Amino acid sequence: MTVRIAVISGSVRRGSHNSALAALGAERIRAAGAEAVPVDLSTYDLPVYAQDLELQDCPSDARRLKATLAACDGLLIATPEHNGSISTLLKNAIDWASRPSDGESAIALTAFRGKAAGIMAASIGPFGGMRALAHLRQVLGTVQMMVIPEQLAVPLADRAFTAEGALAEPLPNAILDGLVGRLVEVAGRLRA
């Protein structure tokens, strides 16, 4: 059975560097022989998470997102850095997908538990989203994912991509290849 990796950009901005990075990650996942499952957060109507909303009637898009992630063996996430952390959009999506459903216990975490995650960031700043990556690693660890050690931070992102959307420099390309290769390998082993 083919390894399935959900690919998520924590940005829905037109021309997003992180969406470009996620698209490159999806290409590399396919090249590694796995299936890339794009998850476009702009297609999910997710209110800001509040337990009262969840208890009244969990949004159907929250259930749809959770089901999509639960059907995958791992995640590849590209996050922007907003005020030194991950985007509100991304955190809200993780919060909704982490909620129990269908009689699960509060700690079931079926969209995340025991799966592999790879993390990336692109930022126009000189550090490439490193603070956001640290926060994302912590959040994903809290929902019981195994975040692989490899990560990619792309600084000066407004100059890091070619007109065709590829990474312009060899080093980030090599890091992306290593990150995706390890993610597919670990996701496959964890699934077994």
Rank of each mutant, 00 (worst) to 15 (best):
P170V: 10
L183V: 03
V3R: 06
E35F: 02
A70P: 02
A192M: 12
A78H: 03
D158W: 14
A32Y: 00
A78I: 03
V186S: 06
G129R: 07
N18I: 00
R113A: 14
K66G: 09
I5H: 04
R64M: 01
S85N: 15
L136K: 07
L21V: 08
A106G: 15
G33Y: 01
R4N: 03
I8P: 10
Q144N: 11
A50Y: 04
F127W: 12
A32F: 01
A32V: 00
F127P: 08
V154D: 07
A78F: 01
T142W: 07
D102T: 09
N173V: 15
A70W: 00
R28C: 01
T88C: 10
S19W: 06
Q144T: 10
I77F: 07
N18D: 05
A97H: 06
R182I: 06
A34K: 03
E169D: 15
S19T: 15
N18R: 04
L89P: 04
D61E: 13
A160P: 12
A93Y: 05
I94Y: 06
P149S: 05
A71C: 12
S11W: 03
P172E: 13
I5F: 06
A32W: 00
M130W: 07
M1C: 05
D52E: 14
G129N: 01
S60Y: 05
G10M: 01
G15N: 13
A174H: 10
G33I: 04
D57V: 00
A31T: 04
P155W: 02
T88E: 13
L24K: 04
S9N: 07
L176A: 13
G125S: 14
G10R: 03
L171Q: 13
G25C: 11
S19Y: 00
G33C: 05
V143Y: 10
A166F: 05
A67W: 06
